[in-house]
Amino acid sequence: MPQVTLTVNGASHTVEVEGRTLLVELLREKLRLTGTHVGCDTSQCGACVVHVNGDSVKSCTLLALQADGAEITTIEGLAKPDGTLHPMQEAFREYHALQCGFCTPGMVMSAIDLVQKHPQGLSEKEIREGLEGNLCRCTGYHNIVKAIAAAQDVMHGRRAELAPAAE
């Protein structure tokens, strides 16, 4: 069986896979990183989004072998070792941007990539457009959009701390 070597959340792994093994299958079934989810089979829902070499990618639409040599970050790799959450994780909690939590890992990974690629800042409309590749069935996106808007200020250093959600 072919082997793939990749770095996931800072740790190097060499894993035997089939040619057809998808990156998400490697993460979930071989590395037991089950925070990355599978919500569809048409590459649309975005529950499986991870970062590959710094870009958000649907891990259900990438062969594990295509990720050979890549640096992967999953939802499990976002918080600091001391447990401090990434500002985007914190914002999702503060703004009640998740309900069942299933789309959340992919949503957070996409949101981080979106904000990082737009240092000039994103309007509400741009955030909504930027979430084209992620489906959420619970929240109606309202609070997700608010959370991303708040997180970007912290990620870009415009605010030291997350703006609290209004009561």
Partner: peptide
């Protein structure tokens, strides 16, 4: 009170335990 949700931390950290996560 609009307290923040107790369940969020595990969902936001990828530590939710959905049926397909169980082996």
């Amino acid at each position: 009170a609009s307290v923040k949700r107790k369940e969020d931390l595990r969902f936001l950290s990828g530590r939710g335990r959905y049926t397909d996560d169980i082996n």
